[in-house]
């Protein structure tokens, strides 16, 4: 049975206060740790490396005290695309494409060519996707909007002083983008509800009726984009009405203060990332 509650599966951009150590971590340190782990995910192409990363993600979810079911729920809407992608990779990526040495052909017929390399690529890509999703979700699930904005702004502050890089504006844009992901999902949910309540067809209960669904989505896309523009306009109005002038001369309600714990946490993250990157995983 189809549920129209899309927001149940949008974890990126949500904030869930649980008071865990991850929540208490200084956002600047958290951001650096985040980047280090993203780099580790990006450059780990081995099975075992990804097993280690997945285990690490599991540990981080436990540490955040956000229900694992909720964090992983964010995978659900992406599942069909992931499966399709994996299938294409397995079936169509030839050894020239995957570029691995010692690929063993598993199956070959017509233009279909599966090798151990293409299977590996598909599995590793899927694992990476999960890891990145967990990382990004955890970042926003455990950090307030203002925390994120200040963190980004602090990290880019040296660039601003040296080259006039617009750190404040970048921080603002990034955080608004992230925070608007759930808002966008809400808007999508609203439009779907508004249209189906007047007899529109949403392609039935099953996701494999992809074509019908895609067609049903067309009349939703236009109002969705227009709605986003309207919302942006409202946001500008709201900010200007409160006298927003940008970064210059702004003071903060909460000053960021780091503790030795933050340094230790960051060090651990860097070590983990470095270890995963340098260990010569046998396969």
């Amino acid at each position: 049975m189809e549920s129209l509650e899309l927001r149940r599966h949008v974890t990126i951009g949500q904030y869930v206060p649980t008071g865990s150590p991850l929540h208490r971590m200084d956002p600047r340190f958290k951001l650096v740790a985040f980047v280090a782990l993203v780099v580790a995910v990006t450059f780990t192409g081995s099975y075992l490396g990804n097993v280690a990363l997945l285990a690490l993600m599991g540990g981080l979810i436990l540490l955040s005290r956000v229900p694992a079911r909720y964090v992983l729920g964010g995978l659900r809407p992406a599942l069909p695309v992931l499966l399709l992608l994996a299938a294409l990779q397995v079936l169509l990526y030839t050894p020239e494409f995957t570029g691995g040495e010692g690929c063993v052909t598993l199956f070959r017929a017509w233009f279909v060519h599966s090798t151990t390399c293409s299977v590996k690529l598909a599995i590793v890509s899927a694992a990476r996707f999960v890891e990145l999703l967990v990382l990004t979700s955890l970042l926003t699930l455990t950090t307030t909007t203002t925390g994120l904005a200040h963190g980004v702004e602090h990290l880019f502050a040296p660039l601003q002083r040296r080259f006039g890089f617009p750190a404040h504006e970048l921080a603002l844009t990034l955080t608004i983008t992230l925070r608007f992901v759930p808002t966008f999902a809400e808007e999508l949910e609203r439009l779907i509800k508004a249209q189906v309540s007047r007899g529109a067809d949403m392609g039935g209960a099953s996701w494999w009726r992809a074509l019908r669904r895609a067609r049903a989505l067309l009349p939703i896309m236009v109002p969705l984009l227009l709605g986003a523009l309207r919302r942006a306009e409202m946001l500008v109005l709201a900010m200007e009405a409160r006298g927003y002038v940008g970064g210059r001369g702004r003071t903060r309600l909460v000053e960021l203060r780091s503790t030795p714990h933050d340094a230790v946490a960051l060090l651990l993250a860097l070590l983990a990332a470095a270890a995963i990157l340098t260990v010569p995983w046998p396969w």
Partner: peptide
């Protein structure tokens, strides 16, 4: 229950 299985 709205948003079942989520913290919300």
């Amino acid at each position: 229950t709205h948003l079942r299985d989520t913290p919300f």
